[in-house]
Write a protein that binds this DNA or RNA. Structure first.
Length: 585
RNA sequence: GGAGUCGUAGUGUAGCGGUUAACAUGUCGGCCUGUCACGCCGAAGAUCGCGGGUUCGAUUCCCGUCGACUCCGCCA
């Protein structure tokens, strides 16, 4: 028996055709004297009918034994149905059976194979092979395949080479925690799984490959989120002899082509926003620009008011910002309490509010302001009757985090974000470094090879925190889709940046010596970008978690419920690796 | 590391200080020749996550623990 057709491809035009299909039993409808079964394969469903007037008794008896998820091969003839089913692509036809072969029987599955599945995710992960039989999951993985194909086609056309880099590599300082692999041959030494192929792709530029890409797994041993897995996939790209503008142009073209290629409508050219503007207006370096509700700084207006919380915050170098929730003046006390609760997660000590009701202004803080002062604040936020104004007074960091999050929360709650709308944004001019209180030194925002903006290079010695970088992120609907930079290719400048990061000569040589040495032999100016493929597919699929676009993802506690990884290993395995497990009290 | 939500037949839920632990669906059996989430009748199916405490009595209240999820920290 040889498969001739996919179930979901059969149409009325196939009527009369002799076909052989193979697939899983989706459902059996046994009417006693007549049996229907739906057969499913990757392409879809088709109805098969066992009619005793047309099939032998043996065959009919066999059909009675069929159960859900049995794997079958069916040879038969396509015929027009008596009544068609408009809900099914193949709904106009059915197959009458000449022969049935049960290729494999199946236990009753613990989860249903259907799209509108309401089941705990741990079961789905344990029985991932069943979960992946669901059409929606197959669709997600097909989409993923299509996207990687489109990316490869685009980059190939532009002259890029797909080059593999090592999975067993060396631990790098800063950045995320590494996954380590013990070396059997080299006692006491460890490989690290790559957090990204960053150094290798730059070396490939030094090596004259000019245009490199890779669709590559990366590993970071940090806590998980709905959009963060310990292993994830990057579309990693690097090119030589380019400026930031060259990179942005080409990458924008690629993204548009890929999104269009899978049938998604994209608005372009992508708008651009500096990091400073993004933080100022949205409290985020990855603003969701599908709606407004920008943060408004009222520090000027409140620096001398009688309301101590506001005035003293500003006087101590903090700031007061507000957002305008349109038409929310009638929020109940309970609703506002919930918002207060929400911003507290981000460190805000309180949430001040002014409700502009039709006939009155309601606010627990209004009494601390003169009418003029109150008017100035309301004007600053362009408050209108019916609005609710919400304020946080704190350090710029806390204000940005809490109000930025509150904005997103309200935007969602008020239905301001349209699903299936794709709004890209380039965020540019990131700071090169930021001061880390804990470490007592500056640390790279992107990575230590990021090139400063030319006009800011003179600030490297005097005011490192103010130096902007030739670094950029691509943001889609408030999600960081990718980021990159133009790299330093001059050893003098690189040394200077390392010094600014307070890295000692020894550390530099130990960690990056090979890169710096490579750069001494003639390195082209170069730069690139890396996209988070999982997030891209998640957004394309309209999902909430990258787990649904990864075939075998891990749980929030970084385990695999199907294989039960990680697991203990035999003591002789550890011994061979010169590793000893220490019980911690 | 921290905060929160959840955990009850295979699955999804309900429930309550004392119940025969309920409903739906699935499963199994019977009936059924045009169904398509087929229908009808019947049956089986529960260590109420685990451990401890309070109580005459705990699935229910409390504490701990384990697991799943969400978020903060973390993620150059």
């Amino acid at each position: 028996m040889k498969r001739t057709h996919n179930c979901g491809d059969l149409r009325i035009g196939n009527a009369g055709d002799k076909v052989t299909i193979m697939g899983w039993i989706q459902r059996r409808r046994d009417l006693g004297g007549l049996i229907f079964v739906d057969v499913r394969d990757r392409s879809g469903l088709v109805q098969v009918v066992f009619n005793p007037d047309e099939v032998t008794t043996d065959l009919f008896t066999k059909a009675e034994k069929i159960r859900s998820e049995y794997v079958v091969a069916i040879e038969g003839t396509v015929q027009k149905r008596l009544q068609s089913n408009p809900n099914l692509a193949t709904g106009e036809i059915e197959i009458t059976v000449d022969s049935l072969r049960i290729l494999d029987e199946a236990k009753t599955p613990p989860i249903y194979i259907q799209d509108d599945l309401n089941v705990n995710e741990d079961l789905r992960l344990k029985y991932r092979y069943l979960d992946l039989r669901r059409p929606i999951m197959q669709k997600n993985l097909i989409l993923r395949h299509q996207v990687t194909m489109l990316v490869r086609q685009y980059l190939d056309r532009q002259g890029f080479l797909e080059i593999e880099t090592p999975m067993l590599t060396r631990s790098t300082p800063e950045g995320a925690r590494d996954y380590l692999v013990a070396s059997r041959v080299n006692p006491g030494k460890f490989f690290a799984l790559p957090q990204s192929p960053q150094l290798f792709k730059q070396i490939l530029m030094a090596a004259g490959m000019e245009k490199y890409f890779q669709i590559v797994r990366c590993f970071r041993d940090e806590d998980l989120r709905a959009d963060r897995q310990p292993e994830f996939t990057q579309i990693d790209i690097e090119m030589s002899f380019v400026t930031q503008e060259d990179v942005l142009q080409m990458m924008e073209e690629m993204i548009i082509e890929v999104f269009k290629g899978v049938g998604l409508n994209v608005e372009y050219p992508f708008p651009r926003m500096t990091y400073a503007d993004a933080m100022r207006d949205y409290g985020s370096d990855k603003p969701d620009i599908r709606f407004g509700m920008k943060l408004v700084d009222v520090s000027e207006q409140v620096k001398n008011v009688g309301f101590k919380v506001f005035a003293s915050t500003v006087q101590k170098g903090g700031q007061v910002k507000g957002i305008r929730a349109e038409g929310c003046a009638e929020f109940s006390r309970k609703e506002i309490d919930q918002l207060t609760q929400y911003v507290s997660i981000y460190g805000a000590k309180g949430l001040a509010w002014i409700a502009l009701k039709e006939d009155e202004i309601k606010s627990p803080i209004a009494k601390f302001f003169t009418e003029e002062e109150l008017g100035a604040i309301i004007d600053a936020l362009e408050g209108k009757s019916g609005d609710l104004l919400l304020f946080v007074a704190d350090s710029p960091k806390v204000v940005a985090a809490s109000l930025g999050a509150l904005r997103l929360n309200l935007g969602k709650q008020l239905g301001l974000v349209k699903e299936q709308e794709y709004k890209f944004l380039w965020v540019t001019e990131f700071p090169l470094v930021e001061y880390d209180e804990e470490m007592g030194r500056f640390v790279s925002l992107h990575h230590p090879f990021t090139h400063p903006l030319e006009e800011d290079i003179n600030l490297l010695d005097t005011d490192p925190g103010e130096v902007r970088a030739q670094a950029y992120d691509l943001v889609l609907n408030g999600v960081e889709l990718g980021g990159g930079s133009i790299r330093i290719h001059n050893s003098e400048l690189q040394k200077k940046v390392f010094q600014m990061l307070s890295l000692t000569e020894e550390e530099i040589n130990d960690k990056f010596g090979f890169l710096l040495e490579a750069f001494q032999y003639g390195t082209p100016p170069h730069g690139g970008i890396a996209y988070g493929l999982d997030r891209m597919i998640m957004l394309m699929a309209g999902g909430d978690t990258i787990r649904d676009v990864i075939a075998f993802p891990k749980t929030a506690s970084a385990t695999d419920l199907m294989t039960n990884a990680p697991s203990p290993v035999a003591s002789d395995q550890l011994e061979e690796l010169h590793v000893k497990v220490v019980e911690r009290a």
